[in-house]
């Protein structure tokens, strides 16, 4: 079944990573929730699928932190939707998250690299 395969391709997101991805998706301009989810999916070649049940709590959490702000607007196809926009504080947070992420990737990479050489 198609659906099952699709699920096998998915990767569980690390704690806190979703926030970073959302901020990154908003870096180039304001976007509504569906657009953010689609953006992440598209950029990750369909690997990262953001569940609505995770997306909206994350968006509301980010808004409460003051990293994004929201306002109602109209899409290109004239649909009313809530648009999120990254704030200055959010951009600073994104830079910090990115650095943290880089360090972690390097660290994990080093460990896994060592593991592979040991094999």
């Amino acid at each position: 079944m198609v659906k099952t395969e699709k699920y096998q391709n998915r990767i569980e997101l690390l704690q806190g990573t979703l926030d970073m991805l959302i901020l990154e998706a908003l870096r180039w301009g304001s976007m509504h929730g569906y657009g953010i989810a689609q953006g992440i999916r598209f950029k990750s070649d369909e690997v990262l699928q953001v569940e609505t049940g995770s997306l909206y709590p994350a968006l509301h959490r980010l808004e409460r932190q003051g990293w994004v702000k929201s306002k109602w607007g109209v899409t290109e196809s004239n649909q009313r939707a809530k648009f999120y926009e990254i704030t200055k504080k959010g951009k600073e947070q994104l830079v910090a998250e990115q650095e943290r992420w880089q360090r972690m990737v390097q660290a994990i990479g080093a460990v896994m690299g060592a593991a592979r050489t040991a094999e």
Binding site: G33, Y34, T52, Q79, A81
Partner: peptide, 20 residues
């Protein structure tokens, strides 16, 4: 109410995109 509307909008946009 705002949240409910936001989720409604999500669904509408998704449907629209698929129809497109």
């Amino acid at each position: 109410n705002d949240l409910r509307e936001e989720l409604d909008a999500h669904l509408r946009i998704a449907v629209e995109e698929r129809m497109a």
